[in-house]
Design a protein around this nucleic acid. Structure first.
Lengths: 225, 225
DNA sequence: ACCTGAACACCGTTCAAGT
DNA sequence: ACCTGAACACCGTTCAAGT
């Protein structure tokens, strides 16, 4: 007799999502096609439509899978530390799947797991003294900016296959180096830093520091008013 | 004799880019196809390939066209005001074409107009006392975060046609209102603010204020070190 | 319940050919 | 120099049918 869970050749939502995410990671978001996922399971493209209403639903599930990796910090932490750790957690989850950033952004506040995440974050902000509007705004800024830092990390070149990446970066470097020194001195001097992140950890630490400092400074202004 | 510039029925890069941008604005980024642009000019899809190497080149030109609308503030302004005005300028340009955000992000630092923009920004930061790495980082953060504020504005729902937009927002609202009150009290309370920006201008002003305050606070820390 | 097969209306892009 | 026409290899998705 066949087991529902151990069926070897049968598809499952989870298996399909896992495979789809692997394709996005390896070949970029645009490389993900229904047919390619089906092929990976030796199955007809139409087989996926039993498990997902359409491609969009599959993409949503992929985004949600990444969101499920995000953990919020300890509630007891002071707000400043909490914000820093929350951003770090978001960023770490995204760095594992940089090409999925668009999908994650869409699921971050409304997906299965995103709802829990957002609720927890809003709760912390409310307890820290923010009113409803401010909590919503800060939660939104924090999550979206964290994603941006990853998806736009210099040199990440998301949506580009690993092999093409080096070529694209070389082209950018060549572009800047071909610029006239008298008209573009700053760009030429900053070429290294702009094209590829020499130190990714520093890049993220700085981005987080700036944003957290901004929220705290702004919060102080408001509480004084 | 025919004029190169006034030819009525002939295609031109500028005209094609303008039309492509109009399609993106009206129907969303995903609705932009080579065939649709060609149809708008009563011409074969292949006609575009004389003016652009491929679709990617057309998209790049569209992004660059939006970037060309961005003006940097007066150099003489104090850094804090300069940053605020630069972000405002970026945001205003993007708000006119929210569905083009992906294209703009790609051209913002490397496109025809993006190079001038970046050079000017880097120059200001250098004169304000930032070293090369810091200038590059702050320029990067500022520009990318400005774009994010627009492309992820609550309720913007980019990549969705105007007609579908209302439906999508209604669905999100229904989703949140269907959530159990005991488990998602914060989300339910914040539903209005999270789903659609009640006051867009305030949303942008707050986002800018937070980021600028962060950069200034961080700059102070560094200069003290 | 779960998957196949054939078909449809789309894509971007090639190549050779026209004018 | 600038555009057409036909063709190719892809897409996501439908519908009816199989087991």
């Amino acid at each position: 007799m066949k087991s529902k869970n151990a069926a070897k050749n049968s598809l499952s939502r989870d298996a399909l999502v896992e495979r789809a995410l692997a394709i996005v990671d390896a070949e970029g978001f645009e490389a993900l096609t229904v047919r390619k996922v089906a092929d990976a399971f030796g199955v007809t493209p139409m087989a996926l439509y039993w498990h997902f209403a359409n491609k969009e639903a599959l993409l949503a599930a992929v985004g949600d899978a990444v969101v499920s990796q995000i953990r919020l910090p300890d509630d007891e932490l002071p707000l400043e530390d909490y914000l820093r750790e929350a951003m770090t957690s978001l960023i770490d989850a995204m760095r594992a799947h940089p090409s999925a950033s668009t999908l994650v952004a869409q699921q971050l506040m409304y997906g299965e797991n995103g709802l829990d995440l957002t609720e927890g974050f809003l709760d912390k902000l409310a307890l820290a003294g923010f009113d409803v509007e401010r909590s919503a705004a800060v939660a939104h800024y924090t999550m979206q900016i964290s994603l941006t830092l990853v998806s736009r990390e210099p040199g990440a070149e998301i949506g580009v296959k690993p092999e093409e990446r080096e070529v694209v970066l070389a082209a950018k470097r060549a572009l800047i180096e071909a610029l006239p020194e008298d008209r573009y001195p700053r760009l030429r001097a900053a070429a290294d830093a702009m094209i590829e992140c020499g130190n990714s950890d520093e890049y993220y630490a700085d981005g987080i520091a700036i944003f957290v400092a901004g929220v705290m400074a702004d919060a102080k202004t408001i509480s004084q008013a």
